[in-house]
Design a protein around this nucleic acid. Sequence first.
RNA 1: UGGGCCGUCGUCUAAUGGUAGGACCCUGGCCUUUGACGCCAGUAGUGGAGGUUCGAGCCCUCCCGGCCCAGCCA
Length: 561
Amino acid sequence: MEQDREKKSLDFIRTIIEEDIKNGKHGGRVATRFPPEPNGYLHIGHAKSICLNFGAAREYGGTCNLRFDDTNPTKEDTEYVQSIIKDVRWLGFEWDDRLYYTSDYFGQLYEYAIKLIENGKAYVDSLTTEEIREYRGTLSEPGRESPYRDRSPEENLELFRGMKEGKFGEGEHVLRAKVDMTSGNLNMRDPVMYRILKQHHHRTGDEWSIYPMYDFAHGQSDSIEEITHSLCTLEFEDHRPLYDWFINALEIYPPRQIEFAKLKLSYTLLSKRKLMQLVSEGHVTGWDDPRMPTISALRRRGYTPGSIRNFCDTIGVTKQDSTIDASLLEHSVRDDLNKTASRVMAVLNPLKVVITNYPDDTTEEMDAINNPEDESMGTRKVPFSKELYIERDDFMEDPPKKFFRLAPGREVRLRYAYFITCTEVIKDDEGNVTELRCTYDPETKGGNSPDGRKVKATLHWVSARHSLSAEVRLYDRLFTEAEPESDKEGRPFTDFLNPDSLTVLSNTKLEPSLREAKPGVNYQFERLGYFYTDPEDSAQGKPVFNRTVTLRDTWAKVRQK
RNA sequence: UGGGCCGUCGUCUAAUGGUAGGACCCUGGCCUUUGACGCCAGUAGUGGAGGUUCGAGCCCUCCCGGCCCAGCCA
């Protein structure tokens, strides 16, 4: 039978790569690169590109370089370099000694520019920024040639050298490619190759007073590194003819650029500028605020590298503009954590329960399973005593039909402990329930009744005397709208910030084993969700928990109806 | 309105010109010491009109809709 022969369907990029390998292009070599600009933190959209570039290289026995596209010293910083290195590693990828910077190529790029000048394919333009814009034309009208377009190579050379040597001020001149001012593709209307920027660069210091534009640097950098497949996002499709023009004019190694759609995720933003704004305006506490879609924030929230890689696998790679449902990301992390996270009992919104027929000073150690999905994770002891806490939501004095948790006169199971029956409801002057009195059935120790009687609900609980209080942060979506950036009435995305994106709980009651919880560990609080000990704010014996994601909650859906 | 790209279930994504499949979401049901997980089932799609063909999601034409480009940003 051929049933087991799995038919894999490749995305269009991998299809091209396999085709190239089959045809012996580049001698079967596969070389990709991930080329971030160090001007912000990486986000989940970058993860898609990272997984594609590093993933494809890995799959086809190739290499993937990490290269920082650092051609604009006014926006870039080593802080971002460091965070990017950390994030790519954390995602599980390695570049060995292939860590590069476009700034490594400034010398070579300068030589390339000289060559184009000598060949009459580049010229120094002395128009102002505004004039260049006017001369460029519009989407529907062709541009006009600059009056400086026909300077001689000798004059251009001298001017360009002068630019390099710092003889001119910022904005006085630029170097432009002599392509075609009438092209329908605006990128071909004599694009700027170099501008004067008397700025300190995070790597080259004050060595340069001119810096190449991205368009004059990116393609050649790929060429220098002999990248076989230059993968980038759709908006650069229009730039490809220009890159090819440069490569052609320079007669250097030609990489093949292939464009794919960048990731969009519902209920969040993935624009570096706007993420920066969220940080600078204080809507979040930083780039790694767990509500952010950055890699560092997802990590701090408790997302695992595997869950993100799996997410990227699931969403695929195409050229179609699309928005992935946030629930798919949530599914990825639940799926991963379900198999690996230790279960533990934690009461977030405590309601006191006194077991009236239980001895005052007795403590029993109940056996609890750490992970029903993985027996090798073993068991632990959880103390049980007369006074307990249960979740407020697990009791209703006047329950609707479909509520089958605790209610007056009703019997439920306390997980790994006993069946209890609610006998009395205690309230304060305002009628708020403050305490429950229950009886337990000693025969049901461990959670089973010898007479075989069933209960409909199993509740989590924590022994009051043994409980630990800890700060627990409940995170929710940052925005209330699926597409905060595209409001019909043009309202800014900041109008749609979710006021309930963060709830901090301090009056929580956790099982005592959590006292020793180390920072940076994933747990499942049974029946509630996955939580992660905050790596920054947790201290010895004083963990702080971030909610990664809730468990799926069927009852919440029923209740809403 | 110049140039480039893209239209398949609600959302993503598959389908040598030959039965439109999978995932997420959703809805039922089973199971359950997590209303979780798991399992079973269900709902639901080729933007439109022509054409080629025995046969079109796929090829051709036109139309409609969406995205990107007018930085000395990347």
